[in-house]
């Protein structure tokens, strides 16, 4: 028995699957370094292999990654097509968690275009895909908070973002997002001091993650808070810092 157990091996993974995994991991590393075009190419290669071997999990993952990269690159139309392809696929059945992520991305795209109704619709669909142990509950709350802000509903935004903060205690990216949304809600409510504190907390997290665009957003929120506090010089400094980051054109 022991010998049998010692000799047993895991499920054999095909060389093609190994290759797709390798492309996927290389894409992840490229994305983390901010090499988005390279990441897009690698995800495409991984997706091509996954389609060829009909690896449903891989197809969903690499389609979502490709959509995300294209969103960062500003190719919203392509992002839309990729997400639609995943959400409207009748032939293959994908995991609900992946469909929930696709729906959230759709909601974010709608929100980016100030389509609050569409964003709400896709946020609701995302929540519907999400099951009990859904790992993007906090993300959905942040999206909804963002929708509430667009609708100038500061209280709802604050409520949702605080819930998102507690839900994303172990996810720094979403935690910083929640803090930023809370700061915006506080600013909307003219609570500049609280907003400044929240943005500073978010700034620390975003700097630790090395996300230029998020750092820039934090600095702009800080500038607004300083302006509301009558600290024009500090506000100017924050804007200047944000402008320097924007000048690098790194996202």
């Amino acid at each position: 028995m022991l010998l049998t157990a010692c000799g047993s091996v895991d499920e054999i993974r095909s060389a093609r699957l190994e290759q797709a995994t390798e492309f996927n991991q290389r894409g992840q590393r490229a994305f983390q370094r901010g090499e988005y075009q390279a990441a897009a190419t690698l995800y495409e290669q991984a997706l091509q292999i996954d389609v060829a071997i009909e690896n449903e999990n891989g197809i969903a993952i690499n389609t979502l990654n490709l959509a995300r990269v294209n969103q960062v690159l500003g190719k919203t139309a392509l992002t839309q097509r990729l997400l639609d392809h995943l959400l409207e696929d009748k032939a293959l059945r994908y995991a609900p968690a992946h469909l929930a992520e696709a729906a959230v991305q759709k909601a974010l795209l709608r929100l980016q275009e100030n389509d609050t109704a569409g964003a709400t619709l896709w946020a609701d669909r995302a929540a519907a895909f999400c099951e009990s142990d859904c790992r993007i509950v906090g993300v959905i709350d942040n999206v909804r908070a963002g929708i509430a802000l667009r609708a100038n509903d500061a209280d709802k935004a604050l409520q949702l973002s605080e819930r998102a903060l507690s839900a994303n205690s172990d996810v720094p990216l979403e935690r910083a997002n929640a803090l930023r949304l809370m700061a915006s809600a506080r600013l909307m409510k003219n609570e500049a001091v609280a907003a400044l504190s929240l943005t500073e907390e978010a700034l620390v997290i975003d700097k630790s993650l090395g996300l230029p665009e998020k750092i820039r957003q934090d600095l702009l929120l800080s500038a607004q808070a300083h302006e509301k506090l009558g600290q024009a010089e500090l506000a100017a400094q924050c804007r200047d810092r944000a402008a320097r980051i924007a000048a690098t054109a790194l996202k």
């Binding site: 996954d50 993952i61 979502l64 990654n65 959230v104 942040n142 667009r150």
Partner: peptide
Amino acid sequence: EQSLPVDGYVAP
């Protein structure tokens, strides 16, 4: 194969 973390923030 891993998916990128979903970024639930859209800058106003």
